[in-house]
Amino acid sequence: MDLAQFLVQALNGVQYGLLLFLVASGLTLIFGIMGIINLAHGAFYMIGAYLAYWLVGLTDNLFLAILLGIPIAVAVGLVIERLLIARLYDRDHLDQVLLTYGLILILNETQKILWGSDFHGVPVPEMLAGSVPLTENQAYPVYRLFISAVCLGVAAGMWLVIARTRLGMMIRAGASNREMTSALGINIGRVFAIVFALGVALAAFSGMIGAPVSSVYPGMGDRVLIISFVVVVIGGIGSVKGAFIGALLIGLADTFGRVLVPDFASMVIYALMALVLLWRPQGLFGRAP
C-alpha cells in the first residue's frame, strides 16, 4: 500500500467513523441519560436513508430532501417516544429490548410496504460530484470529504449544546441524578423527549447524508445498529466523547481491515472491542461501575 492508497483508506475510515458517530452518539445519549436500550435506533438511520431516496425523487435536491426529511423523522420519533418509549422508563431492560426489537420489525415492514425490497441509489448532488486529485492517478470524491466536514460540524454543535447551554446542563444533570433533577423543578420527561428526538434526528441525518455513498436497501439499519452498539461499548456507555473516539476507531479498523486482512475483515471490529474491554471493561470514557 503506497501513501496515496493509505490516505484514501484513512479518509474513507474517518468518513465512515464520523457517520457512525452520528448514530452512536444518539444511542449512547438515550442509553446513558434515559436508561433505554433502543434497538430501534438503527431503524431511524434506515428511515433517514429512505426519506432521502423518496424526497430526492420528489425534489431532485438532496439538501432540500434533508431539510424536509429531518422534521418527518423527528415527528415519527416523538410519536414513538410518547406512545411507547415513555412507558419503558421504569421498566427493566428485557421489556425495553422486547419492545424496541418489535419496533425494528414494524419499521422494517413499513419500509417494505412503502418502498418495496429493491436496492436504490441516491445521486451525489451535482455541485459535490467532483473529485480532488491526491496524486497523478489517485483522486478522492468531494462528497465524502463533504460528509466528514458536515459530521465534524454536527459533532462540534453537539458539544456546544451539551457543554454550554442550559439544555445541556439539564441533560448532564439528568444523566447523573434523575431524581435530584426533577426535585429541582425540571420536567425530566420533557428532557427525555428532547434527547430522544435529538438522537432520532442524528440517526436519520446520518442515513440521509450517507445515502449517496451507501445505497438504500431493506434492513440497512440493522448492521448500523450492531456496529453502533460496538462503538458505544468501546467508548463507554453514556459518553459522547467516547462515542466520537470509538466511532473513529471502528471506522478506521473496519476500513483498513477490509484492505489488509480481507479474509478476517468482519472480525476486526469485534477483536478491537474485545481488546478495549480487556483493558478497560467500562469502555474508554465510561464511568467505572
Binding site: R172, S176, N177, L184, G185
Partner: peptide
Amino acid sequence: PPHTIARRGVALVPEGRGIFPNLTVRE
C-alpha cells in the same frame, strides 16, 4: 410529579447532598 411540586415552591437539600459531579459549581 416532583417537578410540579418543586415549582410550587418546595426545594430539597437531600441526604448525601445530591451534587451533580459532572456539572461545575456555577452550573
